[in-house]
Design a binder for these strands. Structure first.
Lengths: 335, 335
DNA sequence: CTCGGGCTTGCAATCGATTACGTGACCCGG
DNA sequence: CCGGGTCACGTAATCGATTGCAAGCCCGAG
């Protein structure tokens, strides 16, 4: 910057004023400065600027598992929204691991991100607790943490699960199993609770063996589906609490040579573009991922601005296809 | 930091030494400092540190289209590798748009990332050209830019395409079409060239109408496949140059009520976990995405360290499945 | 007792910007 | 011709760390 100033024969203060479009610089001087900038290929040092103005124009996003299409779509939506608001995004992948999550939260806060979006991977987090006490702007996405009071942006898994179960009941299923998420994940718990509740209200029995816990990974979908098929009385329908476990479950079903939906019905949380290309197309609950991401960013910006922001919940959509019986005309088509 | 120093009754210099694990601090003092850090919930300011030591421990990644599963997998691999080496990752999505790409490169360099990974989206880039002249450490991934001499890490699309075409020829196909990428993308061109060449060597005619240009997006796969089916003599086999276009093409094939592979065969660049769950499972060329990402990072680190690094090319693998005829025993399973 | 050397610690410059405040030039009305 | 106001620009402090240099201390050898 000093070089630019020297070449343009002004002070660094003036260079700064030109580069930040501040008034109080003569037109001639401005041109001279811009010329010098151009000639020298000068690059303002955003690090120094951040130090001085105490703002980095950067947001942080810590997600549970970047392998999971739901999270990658979320990351994309967040990146879009952030960039639209002039913010860069630093991405952290916790890999559903407590230590990695803590480390990332620390690192991002040390980097002085202006705000932090977190999909909490584990039930407890000292780092987040401390940060919240220090009034760091944090918003939870998709999941929440008990006892930590920050805005949450997520979809209504309870209503969605209820709708899906009723859909299955309506198709005549009475032996319905659920491959749920880990106990620590609030989303997993919520979906399980809604599942039990809806069956209970309908007076449909629910054997303990029909409630399985996976870890949101493909392998656990395989494991749990295998266990279900080994039961004396296997379920007639299975719900997977996320798309990776659905993928694993599907593999096992195919491996056993079973037919969908005649031998067993399958439905999944999280829709995917290729679900409708399967044979039969897979029934799924579509989360409004893009909206969640965009809303998470605006909520975070609001929190940064006003020091308070409301939690928000978005509705899911049931994409009823043929994988649960009674071929229905599916209503959706691409986008 | 001053607060910590005051509380521990030392100078900020000593606090710094303790926090960076430098020798020359007495044990008692060290403990006092750590205690003060703990009590105050002190967070070192990485921005200030970066300004002083002129290194941010951050890498930048600008990818073509975050919507594309290939790139998200790449991003994941890069994030993994970066984090393993102690670096954070700032992610930029150029959306296959020249202006956005330029903007991101500028922003990331202004942020003083220690190194930059770019999947060049367009044929020309002033920002990258300038940066390279200024000796910014940049590595290209997957694609390259003519006239700009930086290390490139990518897979061997030429050999892969050759193998795929020969596979199709071996299955008896003689009317083979290609839905390629845009002319600006080096990968698109390379795949097209290998396609023509292999057919030429085999003496198989290639109508101009069989060479279509998409833009790597799903919609263009639909468009081009529709055009191919409308030909007087439609191809017996179609290759899509990426998985999104394959998805679009598949939609159209299904929409026309055609059967794979009897009516038309389909193969794709970029494998996906769900390809083998389709009916019939889709033949694809699997790129070593994880390896590309990891190698890109190590290449970049090498470049940062030694100011020079070689380009590297990795081999693809043909996943021959049933979508091109003659059910073969596929050799792969999972990852 | 003195001196040198090793260890611990503090002082102060530095990284590259932003910005409050001050200063001089110029204009204009009275 | 003078006072005040406006405008353009420079001076220097500041953000929060790191680090070269020097100073103080303690200890043992001579």
């Amino acid at each position: 910057m000093a070089d630019v100033a020297a070449l343009a024969d002004v002070s660094t203060a003036t260079v700064s004023r030109v580069l930040t479009n501040r008034p109080g610089v003569g037109d001639a001087t401005r041109q001279r400065v811009l010329g010098a900038v151009e000639r020298l290929g000068y690059r303002p040092n955003a690090v120094a600027r951040s130090l001085r103005v105490d703002t980095t124009h950067t947001l942080g996003l810590v997600i549970g598992d970047i392998e999971n299409p739901f999270f990658t779509e979320l990351a994309r939506a967040v990146e879009d929204a952030a960039s639209a608001h002039g913010y860069s995004l630093i991405l952290g992948n916790a890999d559903e691991d407590a230590a990695r999550q803590e480390r990332y939260v620390e690192v991002l806060l040390n980097r002085r991100v202006d705000g932090l979006l977190v999909v909490p991977a584990v039930a407890q987090s000292d780092a987040i607790g401390l940060a919240v006490r220090q009034h760091a702007p944090i918003v939870f996405v998709d999941r929440e943490l008990p006892g930590i009071d920050v805005p949450v942006v997520r979809s209504d898994g309870r209503a969605a699960m209820r709708e899906l179960v009723q859909h299955l009941l309506g198709l005549g299923h009475r032996r319905i199993a659920l491959i749920s998420g880990p106990e620590q994940a609030s989303t997993g718990m919520e979906r399980l609770a809604a599942f039990r509740e809806t069956l209970g209200v309908a007076g449909v029995p629910l054997p303990v063996a029909y409630m399985r816990h996976g870890d949101f990974q493909e392998a656990s979908g395989e494991t749990e589906m295998t266990a279900l098929l080994a039961l004396a009385e296997p379920p007639s329908a299975v719900i997977a609490a996320d798309n990776l476990m659905a993928l694993g479950a599907l593999r096992v079903i195919r491996g056993h040579g079973l037919r969908i939906p005649d031998d067993i019905a399958l439905a999944s949380f999280d829709d995917s573009p290729w679900f409708e290309l399967l044979d039969p197309p897979l029934t799924a609950i579509a989360q409004p991922t893009k909206e969640i991401g965009a809303l998470a960013v605006t909520t975070l910006l609001e929190l940064m601005d006003r020091h308070t922001a409301p939690s928000r919940m978005l509705a899911c959509r049931l994409m009823a296809r043929a994988s649960c019986g009674e071929q229905r005309r599916s209503t959706e088509r691409g986008k």
